[in-house]
Each structure stands twice: as C-alpha cells, then as structure tokens.
Design a protein around this nucleic acid. Structure first.
Lengths: 206, 206
DNA sequence: TTGAATTAAACAAACGTTTAATTAATTATT
DNA sequence: AATAATTAATTAAACGTTTGTTTAATTCAA
C-alpha cells in the first residue's frame, strides 16, 4: 500500500536528517536506507525539500497540550509539572525530529523556517496560557513568560543537541542512545520542576 | 601579508557557516565572499573540514572565565551574575561561531565533535567551580550542577538558534540582527539572573 | 486496458580538491 | 647594490564525485 511506503520513507528520512542534518543527508542515502528506488522520493514528495515539509507537518502535534490546558481539575502547579513531563518525554523519544526542527530554524528555505516558527509559536501559546492562569490565581509571580518557556525548551534542547557533551559529563558511552535517554530523562524532569517551582513561586524570596 | 588573508578567510567562513551551516556552505561560496581564489582555501587550510577545525581552535577562549574564578574579592552571587553577563554578551556578539558549535556537535566528523566537546567541557568546569564554592559557603543550595549550567547555556542558545521564533514573539523585524541583539540581550540577562537567584538561593522555599 | 507504481539509466549542476602554470616576494650570490 | 636562485602566493582550468531531479521503459494492480 502506498501510504505505508510513504510513511516508511518519512521515518527513514527523519532518522537520517536528525543524525546528519538536512544538507548532510542525500536523497540516495534515504532511498538506500528505506530500500526504495531513488526516484520514488521525487515521485511521492516532489522534491527533497518538500519531503522535509511533509515530515514537519506530519510530526507536528498540538493536541495533547491543548487538552491539558482545558482540564480544569488540575492546579497550575500540576499543569506545569505535566508540561515538563510531556516535553521531556516528547523530545527524548523524538530526538531526530527535534534536531531537525532546531536545524530547520537555520534552513535556507523560507518555507521551512516559517513552518518551524509556526509550530513553535503554537506550542508556546499553550504554555503561556498556563503561566498566565497561575499568575491570575496569585500562585505564580511575574516573570518573563517568553524566556521562561525558552528556558524549558532550551534546557531540554541542550541535552539533545549537545549530547556528546552531556554523555562525556555523565560518563555514558557515547553512542548508546538508549542509555543516554534512560539516564537523562529523570534528571531533566526533576531539575526542570525544581527550577520552575523556585522561579514561579509567588512566595519565593526576592 | 599571509596571516591577514588567512584571518579574513576565517572570518568569512565563520559568517557563512553560522548562517547556512557547514554542509550548507560551499568552498566556492567562501572564496567568492572573501574575494580570494578557490584554491587558496586548500592552500591555507588543507581542506574545508580542516578550516572548520582551525576556526574553532581560533575562537575558543577560556581566559576570561578562569580569571573571574580566581578573583576572590567577588561573592558567589556576583560571580554568577558576571558569568551570565559574560555568556550572554559573548554569544550575542558571536552568533555565528555559537551556531557553528551547536551544529558542530552533530557533525559527521569525529575530530570536530570532540573539539567542540572539549571546548564546552573546559567552560563547564569553570562554572561548576563557582557553584560548588557557593555551596561550600552555604549560600547556594544543592542543585543538579550539570543541568543548571545546561539551563543557562540552553536558554541563551534558544534565543539564537530559534531566532526566527523569538523575533516573531517580540515583534522584531526578521532580518535585523542588530535590533534583535539590542532587544534580547538585557531581557536575557535579567531573566537568567532572576532565575538563577531563585534556583540557587539556599533560603528559597522547598 | 487503463492508470498507478516501480525501475535503471541518464541529466546537468554543484561539490571538494588538485594540477600545472604564472606572478610576487625572499633569500643567496656575486 | 644588482642579479640570480629559491621559495611562497596566486591563478584558471580541470579532476572525478556526488548532488537532486527527470526520463522513458517496464511491471503491477484495478
């Protein structure tokens, strides 16, 4: 079936783009690793760049954050903790697509750049809502919301983009992705939660 | 003189690598923008990759952090603030080399990857010393030092790697690098200082 | 039998690098 | 100080690969 094959090509491309970057991955690499004919990529997607667009569109997923936001049974603190869990898990389990999005920000293609920005903006809006809600309820203090979100994203990104560095730091064998994930994920979650609690808590000292 | 020309080529390469990535920049691009003959790059550096190595070696600079650490007239809080100022200024004024280092982490060349890791490790050790010193003096509380440094680096990186996103967020015209720097730098400094104070202060609430 | 899927081969363009020839600058010799 | 010899710097052209994409022929399914 065609949809399966398309999906399989996208998954292969995701891995390779994530490991070697867009420019560092050739269409022949993808075709070979996916065991499809070279021409199939143009046939399915039109071009290499259109394939990246398709990949980004396909992986963008806002629904969970939006559902979280609508859940009125959760306190702002609980929501913050869940956002942390959600993002750490999401990025740690999708290292490739995350690397692609970070590299996509620097793409030469305006289409790609705008697509990545759009996805990020939409995710940002959801987190912003949570923080503002906490502030209205006099639980969170006044902070720079944009950069607070940047800190969460940046801290997680750091552990994936500079993986070599953190692997050296935590004495994890360099190419064992699974060991890295296992070790970093809980550390990252508790660090971010502690950080955000100290940062957002209205009762913190000045 | 030869040294000037070599330097000029490196500066040109830095800008282009920073903007378009290593794979996204051709040797011909560099030669053209630097107004030198194509063959000069092989002549001076041996190869494109060796040129990137030369660029990283050339720009790595640890001395300021080491001096800061040895200054015993400063309190740990003052040192933290200065580290923030130092890094924000450094990265904001060297967007290109910073982008290169982030991309270099994902390079296919082991030489480059290890070089970047080495530079980062050396910087990390200096910041780690400051935090441990503050903990010994019962001013800072127990935190995950590795990830705390990751948060500082990550937050700053975020504003440079995802510049398009933050430009959209802060309503800065997309391609005005100077306006972006002017607007983000002070925001970033005060956000990080507030964040670190709340995070590190031993008197913060649990 | 019609249209979609798949293939091997070819395309022109761009890539990093090397060559061989020429010019500029240094050094050595008279 | 002038000239010859030597080294360094610079160039245009070409090298062989690899790049993304297209073509035209063939196989497969409806």
């Amino acid at each position: 079936m065609a949809a399966d094959k398309r999906e399989h090509i996208l998954a292969t491309a995701e891995k390779l783009f994530g490991d070697n970057g867009f420019d560092g991955t050739s269409v022949r690499d993808i075709a070979q690793h996916a065991n499809v004919n070279l021409a199939m990529i143009s046939y399915y997607f039109g071009s290499k760049e259109k394939m990246l667009e398709a990949l980004l569109e396909h992986r963008a997923n806002y629904t969970i954050l939006e559902a979280l936001n609508k859940d009125e049974s959760l306190t702002p603190w609980e929501k913050v903790d869940r956002v942390v869990d959600f993002y750490v898990d999401k990025i740690m389990n999708n290292l490739c697509i995350h690397n692609i999005m970070m590299q996509g920000s620097n793409s030469r293609s305006e289409v790609i750049k705008e697509l990545v920005t759009k996805i990020k903006l939409r995710n940002f809006e959801q987190i912003k809502k949570i923080i503002i809600d906490g502030q209205k309820k006099k639980i969170f203090r006044k902070v720079d919301i944009e950069l607070t979100v940047g800190t969460v994203m940046g801290t997680i990104s750091q552990t994936t983009l500079a993986r070599n560095f953190y692997a050296a730091l935590f004495n994890i064998e360099k190419d064992n992705e699974e060991a890295y994930r296992k070790k970093i994920t809980p550390k990252l979650k508790s660090h971010l939660k502690q950080l955000l609690h100290a940062h957002l808590d209205i009762n913190s000292e000045e």
